[in-house]
Simulated scan of single mutants.
Amino acid sequence: MKFIERYVFLTLGAFLAGVALEIFLVPNYIIDGGITGISIMLSYLTKLPLGAYIFLLNIPFLFLGYRQIGKSFVLSTFYAVLVLSLSVTLLEKAPALTNDTLLASVFGGIILGIGVGLVIRHGGSMDGTEIVAVVISEITAFSVGEIVLFINIFILGSAGLVFTWDRAMYSLITYFIAFKVIDLTIEGIDEEKAVMIITEKPEEIVETITARLGRSVTFWEGIGGYTKSKKGVVYAVVSRLEIAKLKNIVKEHDENAFVTIHDVYDMLGGQFKKKSIH
């Protein structure tokens, strides 16, 4: 069942990316980053099919990914790239939904971000530059994100030479919108936050969080590094919308408590899910 679900979402994500490209971006001379952006420019310059460039240019990186990342990722990526290539080929003659460049860059970026996010969330990719970034990051001090950003800025900047500089700027708008939507698609709109509270009144805070927010909480004893006094360390996972309530709970019981809040990108097991409050 998981296998079927995975490939359904890979198909949907790749198809949505194809819709974004052929219905919004390509007709308005707006490009995406990575291999897709290079393919759009090459297709424009040579008049050869975009789908063929997307597929062929990604193949060398798939071989590289097989050696560096693993079989499962490469198979999912190969399938997503194949579906994307077929989608843009099938939609090549479809009319653009809008000729307004700003609307095309915004809505194209949103749909593209959802499509790419679905593919990444289900174990694949549609761009060989990410594989290159993983390899380069292993031999340099740069992170994968920094390398991908550098490559894409160079590619998006090239759009100014192939098309016009205003199209390059619209392409940047599309890229940053897609980037944020990819994060939302992968992480979900209702982001979870991990909260750690160092306090002298852990039991009162734990009881109130459980009663008011319906969240399971863990706490243990700690010792202050400077004062050497005993402290309670409270750990909870709450939604982004519950952060303000949690801060108020902490202030009620211990105004001197030390609180740190971090993004949670994934959770597995445990009893951190919200319980019903009666």
Rank of each mutant, 00 (worst) to 15 (best):
P49T: 11
I69V: 13
F150A: 13
E191M: 06
F24G: 10
T260L: 12
L184Y: 00
I69H: 09
G51F: 13
I38P: 00
G269E: 14
V132L: 15
L213Y: 02
V148F: 13
V134L: 15
L91N: 10
S125V: 10
T199Y: 14
K2R: 09
G117Q: 01
K230S: 15
I139H: 04
F61L: 15
I131V: 14
P27S: 09
L64A: 15
K193D: 03
P95V: 09
N248F: 15
V237R: 15
G13P: 14
T210R: 14
Y175D: 05
A159G: 12
L12H: 07
P60N: 07
L102E: 08
R240Q: 10
G128W: 02
G113Y: 04
F61Q: 15
V206Y: 12
L10V: 05
L57C: 12
S85D: 03
G124F: 04
A168M: 07
L241Q: 08
E255A: 11
G269F: 06
G65H: 08
L10Y: 04
D266H: 15
L42E: 13
E255D: 12
N248M: 12
V233S: 12
L42G: 03
G123Q: 08
L161I: 06
S72D: 15
I177H: 00
S137D: 05
I120Y: 05
D263I: 01
V26C: 06
A236K: 14
I182M: 01
I151T: 02
G225N: 03
V206P: 00
Q271H: 15
M126N: 12
L45R: 13
G113K: 00
G51K: 08
G145N: 10
R240H: 05
T210Q: 13
G224T: 00
G269A: 07
K274T: 02
S87I: 07
E146T: 03
I277G: 12
L82F: 15
I205S: 00
V195M: 04
M169C: 04
E130S: 10
N152L: 05
Y175E: 02
I155F: 11
F73D: 07
A52K: 11
L161C: 02
L62P: 04
T260K: 05
S239W: 05
T185C: 00
K275H: 08
T98D: 05
E200D: 08
R215G: 06
D263S: 02
I59A: 10
V195W: 08
S171R: 11
V74E: 04
D190K: 01
K228L: 03
V119Q: 04
F163H: 11
Y44T: 06
M169Y: 09
E5W: 13
M126T: 13
G34A: 07
A17G: 11
R240M: 08
F15S: 11
F219V: 08
K230C: 07
L62W: 09
A236G: 09
F272W: 07
R215Q: 09
A104H: 05
H122S: 09
F63L: 13
I110C: 02
I139C: 01
E22S: 01
S143F: 12
E130R: 04
